[in-house]
Amino acid sequence: MNFKLKIWRQADAKSKGKFVDYELNDVPAEASFLEMLDILNETLVRKGEDPVSFDHDCREGICGACGLYINGHPHGNFKNTTTCQLHMRKFRDGETITVEPWRAKPFPVIKDLMVDRSALDAIIQAGGFVSCHTGGVPDANSILVNKKDADLAMDAASCIGCGACVATCKNASAMLFVSAKVSQFALLPQGQVEARERVQKMVRKMDELGFGNCSNTYACQAECPKSISVTNIARMNRQYLSARLADPLQED
């Protein structure tokens, strides 16, 4: 298959970027999108040009490292698929493919298609965990968990932290990401102990980092490669508002 590629090139965080056009021929239809970029990079290296940088690691759709904005959609316009699991046979032969990095103020570009998503780590550090120490915990079966709740928690916990929700949201809001973590713990008795503090701390951190406000377009849910539901956002709103009323965080 042959493709015309329009790829965002930017030497580093401080440089100005621009689109560069490439033509790539004889790409096998079975190749994944990232393998197609590997082929491009191989030709660039042979020509003595700078290869395109992009984040990627497991290449099986679970680590969340890859994330390219392809033809106007994060991970391309295909349901439940990460960029690494997207195959070239899904494109038309001869198609022009535009590849951009995630764009959001909290996600500055590092180089080419690679962005800094450490803001997501910072949100987790604000409270996205259960504060138990290693050791000294009760037997695993001593606290029973309703199966439905456990399943819902698992649905939320499937988030791979790729940032597609932020990338696609017209407001660059991280609500789906944050609410997935808040929900996972809110649904489990182990997480409920500090649920009120957690949700307030995480929302506060999210706001501080400059993410936008949710306007309930649900584009995040539509583009999430793991189909995380926006009902998690409703749960977080509910949790946040009641926590705010009943037990506001002490100003520190």
């Binding site: 965990f129 259960v130 138990c132 290693t134 050791g135 915990v137 009760p138 037997d139 695993a140 606290i143 968990v145 309703n146 199966k147 456990a150 399943d151 928690a153 698992m154 916990a157 996972q184 713990f185 489990l188 182990q190 997480g191």
Partner: peptide
């Protein structure tokens, strides 16, 4: 035990 206490959603 540790992972359950951390909120790992094991199958139930």
């Amino acid at each position: 035990d540790q992972c359950v206490a951390q909120g790992v959603p094991f199958a139930r």
